[in-house]
Computed example of a mutant assay.
Amino acid sequence: MTKIKDKVAIITGATSGMGLETAKRFLSEGARVVLTGRDQGKLDNLKGELSGDYLLVKAEASNLDDSRQLIEQTVSTFGKIDILFLNAGIFRLEAVAELSPEIWDEVQNINVRGPLFTAREAIPHMNEGGSIIFNTSVVNGKGFPAMAAYASSKAALRSVTRILAAELGEKNIRVNAISPGPIETPIYQKHNVAQEQIDGMASNFPAMVPLGRFGKSEEIAATALFLASSESSYINGAEIPVDGGFAQV
């Protein structure tokens, strides 16, 4: 347990899927981990599932007051921050003809505004050598029907990654992104359309992936660990695809 031992990590959207697996991996490496979620019940259920030095904080990803309180609680409990994994997000499917300003705002607020301003709140409290990681998506570089709001939000995060990397280099804080492809995650049960439509879309993914399968949340966690640790000390402003080749070939 040496890669991030005793480091303080915040992981947003950590009650399930990629966020939860990353929290478990970080804890197993000896990190002190703050997990957020917007459902207090789900947070409470994690108490019997986690081991190590952790803190559970109820926080809505798009709520700036929640972001401020998250950072305040982290600092008051653990001191400075070393790792910030901005993983929380929402998945929506609407063709442009059906897209409303309200849906657009909801997706952008949760997927872009929230992570950006959470990072802004955290930066003054981050140790030199710290690591900020955004969770983007392969859809930010490909065109899929009904993903105008979702894909554009992930493309915005890719741009934010570059900008913050340029701004924070002098502080020796690295900023990178993980770009997941099709991953086995509860996001496929969190959406706004008929489950049959999601299942049909998902069933086509393995044939589009050179490795012929869905990825696993544990594979995202392993990449997050790499980017959080000193083993990636000269990687900055990058987006690391974890997609089995989906968007690469």
Rank of each mutant, 00 (worst) to 15 (best):
I90Q: 04
T77M: 10
R38F: 10
T77K: 15
Q73W: 00
Q69R: 14
L93N: 01
K47P: 11
I132S: 01
E102D: 15
Q40E: 12
E72R: 14
A31N: 06
D53G: 00
K58M: 03
V75T: 15
I81G: 04
N111M: 02
A119F: 08
D53V: 01
H125T: 09
L64E: 05
V33M: 07
G41P: 01
V107Y: 08
S28Q: 13
K47W: 01
E98T: 05
G130S: 06
M126D: 09
S62H: 11
Y54S: 06
E106I: 07
G89N: 08
E94C: 07
E94N: 15
L64N: 08
G52S: 10
G114T: 10
L64I: 14
P124Q: 12
N127A: 14
A31K: 07
S76Q: 14
A122D: 07
E72P: 06
I103Y: 08
S76R: 11
K42L: 10
G129P: 07
E98R: 14
L50H: 00
R92Y: 13
F117L: 12
G41W: 03
G52D: 12
G130F: 00
V34Q: 00
L46T: 12
I110S: 15
L46A: 11
N63F: 10
V33R: 03
R32P: 03
M126L: 05
E102S: 09
S100Q: 12
L70I: 00
K42C: 06
Q40D: 09
L86M: 09
R113T: 15
T118M: 13
S51F: 08
F117A: 12
G114F: 04
F78V: 02
H125A: 11
Q108C: 03
P101L: 09
A122H: 03
I132D: 02
